[in-house]
Amino acid sequence: MSEFLSPKDLPAALAARAAHPDYIPVAGGTDYMVASKDRLPPPGIINLFGLGALTGVTDLDGGGVRIGACTTYATLLGDARIANTFPLLRDACREVGASQIQARGTLGGNIATSSPVGDSLPPLLALDAVICVASSAGERRVAYEDFLVGYRKIDLAADELIVAIELPAPHVGAMQHWRKVGTRRAQSISKVMMAAVAHLDDGRIADIRIALGAVADRTVRARATEDALRGSAPSEEAAKRAREALRGEITPIDDLRSTAEYRLGVAENLVRRFVLSL
């Protein structure tokens, strides 16, 4: 049997984490429970779900928000700031699992699992999220792209917990776009995801951030594609350049859910469609 710890506050949680680096911190448990059938139980579990310090959305100076790591998708879906300022994240949360999963699954949990098919991850990357990590020694802040270090690997030490996600205010007038392509309409694991944010200046793409899911070992920014588009008018010609750049920078794989050819082709089409929509 695993020991089950339910710390009462953040210091207690961080102390438990430091004392038991081999225990698994669990937020909503929606990933953990699915995988538990096929592996030995861990020596212990640190339950973080419902911990006040890790839950809820607060305003940041300058129009951004700070989201507690254990905030559920359901909470995010009911939050007017998320809907108004970060519709990209709202749209992604809406397509996670079903109502039961949305009521239990958390943003921090999705980041910690760091599956290449995590549905909330491309929006965070496209929105320039900063991950706030804490240990008993203090808090540090990491750009989300740097936090992703490999296949299901994140920059988190054995005594640290993810405590919050900060989203800076997007540029005024920026377009946000989300598209999940799954194996079916609901309850589906993604085959390709695209989160994109862009704004125009004088008819040209002043800035664009494109994050893709399910096309690499982790959620990735399509940097070369962005570079190919920045400064251009959103035309078929620009879209063509973007497709070529994208082909050069992602190498998706075949698996049980789809094919490399499909993932690449669809990612190209989605980028093109986004460019033409600007």
Binding site: R184, R185, A186, I189
Partner: peptide
């Protein structure tokens, strides 16, 4: 059930 796909109500 996650990879042996059958349609749901949404489909």
């Amino acid at each position: 059930m996650t990879n042996c796909i059958v349609p749901t109500f949404s489909d």
